[in-house]
Write a protein that binds this DNA or RNA. Sequence first.
DNA 1: CACCAGGGTGGTT
DNA 2: AACCACCATGGT
Length: 222
Amino acid sequence: MIGSAELHDTLLAVHGPQHWWPAADDEVFEIMVGALLVQRTAWHNAAGAIEALRRRDLLTPAALTAADIATVATCIRGAGFFRSKAARLMKLARYLHRDASIDELRTQSTPGLRRTLLALDGIGPETADAILLYAFERPAAVVDEYLRRLAGRLANAGRTPGDGQLREWVLAEIDDVPRLNELHALVVAHGKTVCGRRPRCEDCALRRRCRTGRTGRGFSEA
DNA sequence: CACCAGGGTGGTT
DNA sequence: AACCACCATGGT
């Protein structure tokens, strides 16, 4: 099985740097909002929703808590699923304004912070790891559908790995935030342009590594 | 027109 | 544990 470091380097050579969320310290809440808004939505539309919220100065927990949910829903309508997303944003803002705070979350250990995020409405494993990585700059491996499909083609020996195995596989060779950041963005770029739902391995820089082409060790159990 | 986009939740088998 | 419907808009 190819290592995550080689996957990173190969995709970087093909697609170049992706420039995803260079998280400034005062943008943590904004990035958390973006991570919720972008779910099953093109980034362009999520970005428009964030700008609409920014125009109304709603990108702080306090301001969003005080806002009317109908106003929030109007701002984020273009990002889709606006009713559920508006409710989730209000819950997130209330939680960070009343029950906790960004600074308090910063003091938590990475595993603890992951559990904290997973307990919030609308934050599942992928969004939690994206927030850990892009907002809090913690070493986290974001496992998305593109990476699952990619791993399914690259792991020719064993069975297709589960999400937990995929996280371990990524972190085994990459533990620094900049490359984990870049890797997830590159996997998405690769999935959208070359090997998406229907693989086009003949055009892919990884074609020699794919199940249709070659040998490898595959993922090990446990 | 069908399909996709930086998923998660709740219910059923 | 795997599968499913649902959420909803904008772009191609």
